[in-house]
Design a protein around this nucleic acid. Sequence first.
DNA 1: AAACAACGCATTTTT
DNA 2: TGCGTTGTTT
Length: 767
Amino acid sequence: MQKLLHNLNPEQLAAVTLPAQHALILAGAGSGKTRVLTTRIAWLIQTQQVSAAGLLAVTFTNKAAKEMLTRLSAMLPINTRGMWIGTFHGLCNRLLRTHHRDAALPQTFQILDSQDQLSVIKRLLKANNIDDEKFPPKTVMYFINNAKDQGLRADKVDAYDANERKLVELYQMYDEQCQREGVVDFAELLLRTYELLSRNQPLREHYQARFRHILVDEFQDTNNLQYNWLKLLAGHGSRDGGALFAVGDDDQSIYAFRGANVGNMSSFEREFQVKNLIKLEQNYRSHGHILDSANMLIANNSKRLGKNLRTDAGHGEPVRVYEASSDLQEAQWIIEESKSLIAEGASRSEIAVLYRSNAQSRVIEHALFSAGIPYHVYGGQRYFQRAEVKHLIAYLQLMDNPHNDSAFLRVVNFPTRGIGVRSIEQLQAAAEQYGISLYAAVPYVAGKAGSSLAGFVKLVEGVRFETQQLPLPEMVRVVLEASTLLQHYQNEKEGADRIENLEQMVSAATQFISEEGFGQGAPAYLGPQAQAQSGAAVALGDGVEVLDADAPLAAVMSPLSAFLSHASLEAGDNQAQAGQEALQMMTVHSAKGLEFDNVFITGLEEGLFPHESSSKEDGGVEEERRLMYVAITRARQRLYLSFAQTRMLHGQTRYNMKSRFFDELPEESLKWLSPKVQANWFGNKKSAWDMAPMSSAGSDNAIAQKIAHASGPGWRIGESVSHGKFGEGVIVNIEGGGGNARAQINFGQYGMKVLDLSIAKLERLGR
DNA sequence: AAACAACGCATTTTT
DNA sequence: TGCGTTGTTT
């Protein structure tokens, strides 16, 4: 135990060894949050305060869950398999599989990813002749997910106008459709579990009694449904609930746009009467100047629980700030700085380039490519999302649950087998008429269409029969052949990558089997009937069956069902491959939780970061500031901040002011670098424009011409000016000439103004 | 059924 | 500007 707790600082130690009571841990960036969480689990088990089965730990991402399991295995000589550690969705999946009857779901229910969900909605809108101009599928999806995230079914959603009533109606129809198909979306996993436990008292009490300790990671990211889910499981309001241990950082709350509610932190404190509140403020990551910058910036936010990071490391290097004349030049500068970092011995994978939005990566990528520096961009398409992989998965889905219409439509004519739109329309009409799935409706379609559809059904049935005794990887292999997917891509000219991805499915299945305990020595899958009679299930009063605590997933679902869940819940890594010697590029959002020796935060301009659309939402700018806080705290040793006077965005040149965040950083921690070649609007031929590596692209020339034409005697486009009332601004355009000249000026947070140049008192800024 | 043109749209993202 | 979606042509 000494070993377990050694090297913890006093706050960490206090958090780890708290009594079995509710607790809120405010864990600053780089304060050892994951360490506290995992050590607490290990400590609870080792001191025998709880068994491994009496504990539940929940995270948002699979990566975080895996990390926790890995660290735990290193701390304790226990088998972590079978422990209730996972994502909200993963744990819900497990509960719903175990209690599928009580949850009114088929045992082989399947999970829709966002793509699938959208296609269900599109189909629904089409089938009901709904104008998708008036009800865009994306809007409908947002409406439905939002309602579910609030814990509301269609009959509980308030509708104030005809439009909303229609949305509610669509929500209702969507849920019915999913129920018919035996599919659930992500939000449904949570809502269904929540409803199951609310409704079913014996079940609820069983789990409440079981989970003595519930631990939550990234608590600031929970939405209302997740918070209520936790309240329910922790037995809030009942005599004998478990202890809820929540770890989070309100300053790193950057997901309000997807329903996260930071307010859950204070609600938790109040509703659970939390007496144990511990702040982890000792930072083990960043040097002083970086931390000072982060602290001073975030102090500008009003709604905070209050926390200040400190470090024992020295001040370190100052934060370097660079003003570029253009986005191209900014990219060029990043390359120069990276080169010298690498020359000084920095590993490429320890250099991260962060940006607010993905559109900004293009220019930088181009420059990196030209310079021959290997790089990796996060956030591309994930393995299980690729079209060819989803096709193969659709065949597997049909074998496990033929009523999944999305899967059916995806592959009924892919590869093409002469089943055209007319056949599908006939089939859809029949399915509609009898209220059944497309698959079940096949026998009701007559004629040529009917026989080709029957051929498809025969194919699926045939493969299902043929493979039912085979191990999963072999099953995948057979489906790969029988579906003729491989053949199809072999005939395609650019199909080599796709074939490789398809082949990889066999190894993905192999790996899944071995990692998830479906391999040799795994408990045999019992099947729906056998489960109840076997030792895996214990009878609980009133005939409710509750699977035994340690019943692994392998006992409640077939390898195929499990693999399909896995494919939906874990779309595959788009996180960095560790050890890959490449410079890391990503949005600030995806950088959360990561750290690097050297970090560039780019595009620090008003309108971009903070993003312009954030100023419209209340609390938007504060969230942007938290985002900046997250970005800054990613850096261990060196931090670079940059902005550009001119930026090409959506095919238009934009003149932005530098971000307001610069004014919120400690001047003494910053070191302003002067551009190697300053942009020069006054005719200097050796300007940065000409030095830019890609100036032949044409855009620079176009800008240069525009400047030349618009140049009046006094003011020029792109020039920085100062105004008595609006402060600093950048001239974006000049209309008219002589005494009538008016300038359109971007005053950043004060907006765009058009000023008469003969009236407005402008001052030239010597930038 | 595939190839091509036209259109509109463009924060941030995990499950 | 550049991509993904939709409609049109061959």
